[in-house]
Nucleic acid binder design. Sequence first.
DNA 1: GTTCTAGAAC
DNA 2: GTTCTAGAAC
Length: 778
Amino acid sequence: MDSEMASKEEVEEDETKTRMVVVILVGAPGSGKSTFCEAVMKSAHRPWFRVCQDTIANGKAGTKAQCLRSAVDALKDGKSVFIDRCNLECEQRAEFVKLRRDQVDVHAVVLDLPARLCISRCVKRTGHEGNLQGGKAAAVVNRMLQKKELPKLSEGFTRITFCNEESDVESAVEMYSALGPLDALSSGCFGQKNSSSKVQVGIMKFLKKVEPSKIVDSNLSSSQGAVLKPDTEDSSCLEQKKKASIASVCDKEVEHRNRNLPHNLSGVSTVSVSDIPTLAFPSISTADFQFDIEKASDIIVEKVEEFLSKVTNARLVLVDLSHRSMILSMVKARAALKHIDSDRFFTFVGDITQLYTGGGLHCTAIANAANWRLKPGGGGVNAAIFNAAGPSLETATKERAGSLSPGSALVVPLPSSSPLHKNQGVTHVIHVLGPNMNPQRPNFLNNDYKKGCEVLHETYSSLFNGFLSVLKSSVLEDKINGQRQVSGASESDIGSPTDSFQNNDQKIKRAVTCELEKSKKYKGPEEGLGNRQLKVDCTEDMDLSCSSEAPQAKAPVKTDKCNGDAARTWSSWSLSLYHIAMHPGNEKYKKEIIELSDDAVVLNDLYPKAQKHLLVVARKVGLDCLADVREEHLNLLKAMHAMGEKWAKKSISEDTSLIFRLGYHSDPSMRQLHLHVISQDFNSSYLKNKKHWNTFNTAFFRDSGDVINEISRHGKATLSVDEKLLSMELRCHRCRSVHPNLPRLKSHISKCQAPFPATLLQNGHLISSPGEANSNEA
DNA sequence: GTTCTAGAAC
DNA sequence: GTTCTAGAAC
């Protein structure tokens, strides 16, 4: 940190002087070093000079000494310099790092792209400067990569940017191109993939390369000792050489954000810790609680806008794990349309428990999508945050509340001993509980989006007011402690650089002082921070919540035949069940039918998605699917249920380990109402894709018992026909853990012995052997 | 519903 | 190079 302090003083002496940078490219032949330099220089906002060892001697390869001399000369001319050579080993780059001195930062840009890509580029090359085209390339690249030592800050770099894929490279090009003469980039490591041994177990759940067997274990130990330190200087070269196989937790956007902080614009090189109080939050209710993403996006943007209008120096960050996150892109688009200041609200791809070490984003507070019991576990963000924070979060939470109601928030100060506090700089966790649209989870709203939108509004109000209370309490604390300097702080004071998390409270206090007066809407109690469960009356906002959906952005929802719309057209391939039901005596079908009654036929599914998978097909004409079912069909439904139950029990008597669930697809592909009787092992080679899984394991699947209840009470069944349900993340139907692809999920479910969710057990949705642990009669 | 397959992801 | 997904055709 000394260098940053020194550089600050220098700049203060001469604000107008260009702060030059030496960028040492690190990468194998074919990794794109020259292309990188050319791309930056093409649209640069400061003078650059490229030192290329392959051409330095009148177009031919030269020596390292020549490169050094050339770099020094360029720096003297006030140019920033690219060192375009492989620089794969510490020793090869050491002398270039020494160019770092007054007015010169030394960065590394690591083009750590897949070897095969580098090789294929080399092979395709003709007349490249390095003259490494053709068949030789593979051997050379591989040999060089074996010696690769990824750069570390301890070598003397002020900043290291790791690019593991082409999109990272593009972002880095953009970042360096945009660098004006007086700008400086934040210090630290960016974009580095972590090696598995250093990652918290809770986080592992979200990272794609983790072994499925590890995901199964819901009693994960909190491994505070193994948390990454803010800088990655302690990561050994050896580990880096193993080539971290875990998905990156850093998003390229963050570097832009840090660059854009007010204090960076002055040209002062800063540490990567941002000084603006920041709340990072996941999208509430759109994952496990299956809340409509578009509606949620509207609400998020609306509430963010409202919050930012009353607080001038705090940031909000919406976080999700995947670059392909729908919610992030939708929110981003909506925020852009509303011209929300992208420095004060932005989206971030990464792990919410690793925002600082993973991407240099320092957040004062993080929101947890908690469960109503405020307990660890359950998968998702909740499990990750409790795991990352260590047991002290659970204790601190328990001291304050035993449960949480939908729409509420609970602010919990994080003890300084918590790894999340120590390593990520997070001082508060704000638990929130949003509305639930998942019939398998508590407080199911049964697709009631009027209520759902209200509750989600409330949830974000509670969350943001909770964050406000964090900011506010810091100021109150100051007043008590008589720290007068706080009240005098102006906005320009707020962004001054800091070099450790210890100073964060101070930063928050300064930032918020002038804002408290503005937030008149918040009428929360004044008791000590963290003892407060926030439930905010936001009825005045309600009328906007659901109606703000842009018509053109409305999700395509299939026609609900309940409304008497035009009948659906069925393709020829979708009629086989219909034909069987209509002509059960036909020789073609006879052998498939295992039971025939006036009401229905029972047959084995032609493509069973589990060890046992039967269909009870209604024989009534005109009853194509669940949407057609009305009160008059109640007895038929009960008869079908009884037939299904009988066959399930028969199967169980042959194999007591089987557990069955009976239900209908909300929007079936095959014509003629059919009840699925399916064993819950889902052990089948015919279970091949996400849609298969989600048709049986999301709200798309309507339990037969529920359908019967709904028909008898309301005369029609609840349908969940939103197509998004079928492309939802893959979640274990027992422990609810998320898995990156179907093979991994299948591997997991073959081993998962977690009890079924209470909603299935309690509502009698499962049929199992009386002796089995998961018996619903237990 | 399935199969096939391009191309994305690994 | 292999695995996986997702869209088109049936």
